Amino acid sequence: MENYTYNSLTLQLEGLNVPQDSAYLVFLFFIFAYLFIMFANVGIVVLVFADKNLHQPMYLLFCNLPFNDILGNSILVPRLLIDMLRPPSERLISYYECVVQAFTSHMFGTASLTVLMIMAFDRYVAICNPLRYAAIMTNKMVVKLTASAWGVALVLVGVLLSLTIRLNRCRAMIHSPYCDNASLFKLSCESVFINNVYGLTFTVILFTASIGSTVLTYTKITVVCLTSKSKSLNSKALQTCSTHLVVYLILMLTGMANIILHRFPQYTDYRKLCVILFHIVPGSLNPVIYGVQSKEVRKFLLKLFESKKMLPSC
């Protein structure tokens, strides 16, 4: 099929190589993970907008993460589940659907990092400039930060995919469980030098900016906490910053594992599983981590639980 296609509009996905005896277990794991991601992330967004006490910059900025998790997993997981029920020869996808899937996948990863960067800025202002926090983190600033996080991701990923869709294709096999930029430009028999250069530049800039801003922000926060004698400030810093750092480290570890495994072709099956977990793991853990750590969220859930508990007795 690969040797006799030219700009074919129908592509074939290789999918996951799951042993037959464990296929149903893997299928059930993914479907329950997807349902949990949808329930938890939609729930946390509804919770933030329903409770006026949560109408704070920290929670409003955090809502970008659940939205990103919902979007990224909705494009990937249902299609993956359907393909698991099909024989390999029937795992077909249109070229345009493949491009949309690749765009959404890269937007998920890029926006996750840019959103965490603006959340780090919010924590920096709250701890290092608490008296000016309300003046700096206005609703207008929240909108600007949100727009910048998504705008930067959109431009970076837009250029990435634009360089790929300009190429002619002479193959039709996607050697991955879902479509991404690398899988798409590997379909071409033309030179992909520009794609590789931009892809490497894209990754270096994104990771350098993300890691650099996070290290700088938390270094300044640490200095303020060490020099401050306020126990309430240190307690607040520990609670909010630890949550943000845990979410950030989960995303970075799953992302780096995916990048490293790309360099070892003998671990192709592990890489396929890792790229799926890159979507599922952060999407599952983000709402749980913030829900457990946030005092306001716990209070809201406790009040909701107590009100429901009182209804039957009434």
Score class of each variant (00 low, 15 high):
L200C: 11
V99C: 13
G283K: 06
L187V: 04
N129S: 12
I260K: 06
Q266F: 05
L302P: 04
Y270G: 08
L61F: 06
E14F: 12
K236F: 09
A50C: 09
Q266H: 10
L245R: 13
R86M: 10
G43E: 14
R79V: 08
T240P: 00
C98V: 05
S242R: 14
R298G: 04
L13A: 13
L245P: 10
K272P: 02
S294C: 00
L311W: 12
L167D: 09
I259C: 03
M119E: 15
R132A: 11
V281E: 01
M137H: 00
L187R: 03
R123A: 01
V48C: 15
L65V: 15
N129W: 05
Q20M: 03
I174F: 08
L145K: 12
V247K: 13
A102L: 06
V157E: 08
Y133A: 11
A50N: 07
A153E: 03
P312T: 08
V45I: 15
S94V: 06
A257E: 13
L285N: 05
P130C: 05
C225F: 02
I37C: 09
E97Q: 14
I118L: 08
S162E: 06
I259W: 04
K220I: 01
L302H: 14
S94Y: 10
A23C: 08
A102P: 12
V77S: 04
N3P: 04
L28R: 12
C179M: 05
S89G: 11
V115E: 13
N234Q: 13
I174R: 09
G291I: 00
P312W: 13
P265A: 01
E14M: 10
S307G: 02
F36K: 08
Q239G: 00
Y124T: 02
M252Q: 13
T138H: 01
A153M: 07
K140A: 04
S230P: 05
F305H: 15
K144N: 04
E90S: 15
F185R: 08
I211T: 05
L47F: 05
V159T: 11
T146H: 02
N17Y: 08
